[in-house]
């Protein structure tokens, strides 16, 4: 039994966390190569690239929760909405 068996891993959650880890790694490399400059977009605060990623991820979590709690449609639609919102935040926030 693996030392991480207590964590009850599944493939979908492993892929999810690997995706987050890769995203953070990619953003770190990008920050080193092309440091971001804080800017003001449609949000009332100045944000860096990392801030916008954080807002996108947090929003995605809430969009999915709202979709699960309020809508009867498949969750994929919520995922598409979260992705679109993340695009808006990363580009115009």
């Amino acid at each position: 039994m693996s030392v991480f068996a207590w964590m009850a891993w599944t493939w979908p959650t492993a892929i999810f966390f690997a995706g987050i880890a890769l995203l953070l790694l990619f953003m770190t490399v990008l920050e080193i190569l092309r440091p971001s400059i804080e800017r003001r977009g449609f949000l009332p605060i100045a944000t860096s690239r990392g801030d916008r990623l954080f807002i996108s991820l947090l929003s995605a979590a809430y969009i999915h929760l709202a979709w699960l709690g309020l809508a009867d449609l498949p969750l994929w639609y919520g995922s598409i909405l979260a992705l679109a919102w993340a695009g808006v935040v990363m580009r115009w926030a």
Binding site: M7, A8, T10, F16, F17
Partner: peptide, 9 residues
Amino acid sequence: MAVVNYSVQ
């Protein structure tokens, strides 16, 4: 991470 794993099983 473990909590997230538990939450889908």
